[in-house]
């Protein structure tokens, strides 16, 4: 059976070759603690970023992320390699977040989507990587995006994060969430439209204030 590891993502930044990734997975299957540690190093921040936006607070997100790795370690023997390790880890994380949300019965505040699907516009978002004042603006923009994501329902949020942030293909998301690919696309479209509306309110609201 051929394993699909997701070579471009396994070693955030460093291009680890496919063979060594396969070796890591094989060692993890044999409950190799060190090899699993490498996987944790690779994915901990990405998983935390996803979980952080799916559960209400950072402390809980850290706990859930730990639980993801513990479950993965305990059930690595059952990992069949039909999907990538990345997809598998995100699936565990998604399931844990959904379970937790069901337990807490967290219902997000109601936000109207009226008018979000009609307008599709681009924004002039400057690249402020080397300017301190722009870094502050970017931080603010990031918090606006986070806020917009938090007001979405779990269905839209998960699809948006898994596709746009984590770069997972439609088919894998559909399998993970348990809906047809068309529904994934519809959800993604709505989620992006919702985010666009929030950004529009933020950017044009600021312009009109100044």
């Amino acid at each position: 059976m051929e394993l699909c590891i997701g070579a471009s993502r396994l070693s955030a930044g460093n291009q680890t070759d496919h063979a060594s990734e396969l070796a890591i997975v094989e060692r993890c299957r044999k409950q190799d603690y060190e090899a699993f540690g490498k996987l944790v190093d690779t994915y901990q921040n990405r998983l935390f970023g996803f979980v952080r936006r799916m559960v209400p607070n950072a402390e809980e997100a850290a706990d859930v992320t730990q639980e993801v790795f513990i479950r993965a370690f305990q059930s690595f023997g059952r990992f069949d390699g039909r999907c990538s390790v990345r997809t598998w880890l995100f699936r565990i994380a998604y399931n844990l977040c959904v379970d937790r949300a069901r337990k807490v019965d967290r219902s997000p505040s109601e936000v109207s989507l009226q008018g979000t699907t009609e307008v599709d516009e681009t924004f002039d978002v400057p690249d402020g990587r080397w300017q301190p004042d722009q870094i502050a603006i970017d931080t603010e923009l990031a918090s606006v995006i986070d806020e917009a994501i938090s007001t979405m329902s779990e269905k839209l949020r998960s699809v948006l994060l898994l596709h746009d942030k984590e770069d997972l293909p439609y088919e894998e998301i559909a399998q993970m969430v348990g809906v047809p690919v068309g529904t994934v696309k519809s959800r993604l479209f709505l989620a992006r439209a919702h985010l666009q509306q929030h950004l529009r309110n933020y950017l044009y609201g600021e312009v009109s204030q100044s």
Partner: peptide
């Protein structure tokens, strides 16, 4: 553009 924005979001 929304997708791009999300991908450039800083990681915690």
């Amino acid at each position: 553009q929304v997708r791009q924005l999300l991908q450039t979001m800083p990681e915690e």
